[in-house]
Structure formats: structure tokens, C-alpha cells
Amino acid sequence: MRKGDKWVENELLVKRAIKGSKNDFALLIHQYKNELYRIAYIYTKNQDDALEAIDETTYKAYISIKKLRKSEFFKTWIIRILINECISILRKKNKIVLENDNNKFEVTYEDSDLTFDYEELYEAINTLTDKQRTAIVLRYFDDLKTSTISEIMGIPENTVKAHIRRGLLSLKKILKEEIIYG
């Protein structure tokens, strides 16, 4: 199936879901479930919380899908709902749980190549503002373009770029301090 055919098929699913088709809505959720889980897990750092965020997102999307004006924005619309739900879950818990594993994450700056544990990186990301964290997670963990991030966050593209730039500067400072003062 060509990419264009896949896009047309998605458009039809979304349009039928907006008209009330439960099966088409379920197919859409199934189609995006891995991507939604990845985003939710990056935010919550916990499988149960990620699954709870997806459940709540699915419910909220289902009851409000008729409000979706343009079917081509379904993906950005549902990701926005998911991010808001993840932030809500984290605020309710008032803490962020970090995954403790032995994987490494490499960060390259102009002046050096540095390697950090995932835990150190997640701790640093969790110190950012919600908007900076959202922009960085969507850009570098989910590999989305700034235009798509702009749609998801509902802010201008230049504002997204500013959040990413400020967030990266903060991360660089935090991670360098970790190496120096470790």
C-alpha cells in the first residue's frame, strides 16, 4: 500500500469515527497505540501510569471526537490529549518515578561527546518546565517536526523552537554539573 493510500484510509477511519463508528475509532486507537504508549511512558516513567494515561486519553477522545473539526489533525489532537493526561497524572502523584536501568544515553555537544545514564537524563528532563519537556520529548524521543509539535501544543512554531532551545541549554547545564559534582 502506498503512503498516500494509507493517509486516505486513515482519513476515512477518522471521518467514520466522528460520525459515531465505534469500530473505526477502535481501529484508529489500535493503529496509534505503540506511539501513544511510547510518549506516555517517557512522561510517566511507569508502565501502569502510562497505560492509565492511554485509557483516559482513549475515553476522552471517544466522548469528544465529534468536536474534532478536521480529520487530518486526529493524530496531533490525540497526542495533545495524551500529554495533558500524563501531566495531570504526574501532578496528582506530585512526584516523578524514574526507571533504574543500566542503559546509557549519549548526548553530543559541539565541544565533546558525553554519556549519561537514562536515569540522569530523565532526572534532568524532569527539571524542565512542562512546555520545555513536552517540546523536547516530542522532538527528540518521538522524532516529530517542530510544525507538528506546534500543532500538538497549540503554540506557534517559533515558540516551540524557543522551548526546545531553552530546554536544551538547561539540560546541558544540568548534565555538565552532574559530571563535575556527580
Rank of each mutant, 00 (worst) to 15 (best):
111 D>H: 14
110 E>P: 08
62 Y>G: 07
30 H>A: 11
74 F>G: 03
48 D>E: 09
59 Y>L: 13
37 Y>S: 03
64 S>F: 05
82 L>R: 00
82 L>N: 00
102 N>F: 15
109 Y>N: 12
59 Y>K: 07
103 N>V: 15
30 H>I: 15
49 D>R: 02
43 Y>T: 04
109 Y>L: 14
57 T>A: 04
82 L>D: 00
80 R>P: 00
42 I>F: 01
40 A>F: 00
65 I>H: 05
76 T>P: 12
47 Q>H: 14
69 R>M: 09
83 I>G: 02
41 Y>S: 02
107 V>Y: 02
98 L>F: 11
117 D>Q: 07
47 Q>M: 11
114 L>N: 14
51 L>G: 06
89 I>L: 00
85 E>S: 05
99 E>C: 09
46 N>I: 09
106 E>P: 05
46 N>C: 08
70 K>R: 12
99 E>M: 11
43 Y>Q: 03
51 L>V: 03
111 D>P: 02
109 Y>I: 13
98 L>K: 01
68 L>T: 00
59 Y>D: 04
66 K>I: 07
39 I>M: 10
105 F>W: 13
68 L>N: 04
98 L>R: 04
76 T>D: 00
113 D>W: 13
85 E>P: 04
93 K>Q: 12
117 D>M: 11
86 C>M: 09
53 A>I: 02
70 K>G: 13
113 D>I: 10
85 E>N: 03
113 D>K: 14
55 D>F: 15
110 E>R: 15
99 E>G: 08
113 D>V: 14
83 I>D: 03
58 T>E: 14
37 Y>P: 03
70 K>V: 14
87 I>D: 10
51 L>P: 02
96 I>T: 10
72 E>C: 08
102 N>R: 13
60 K>M: 14
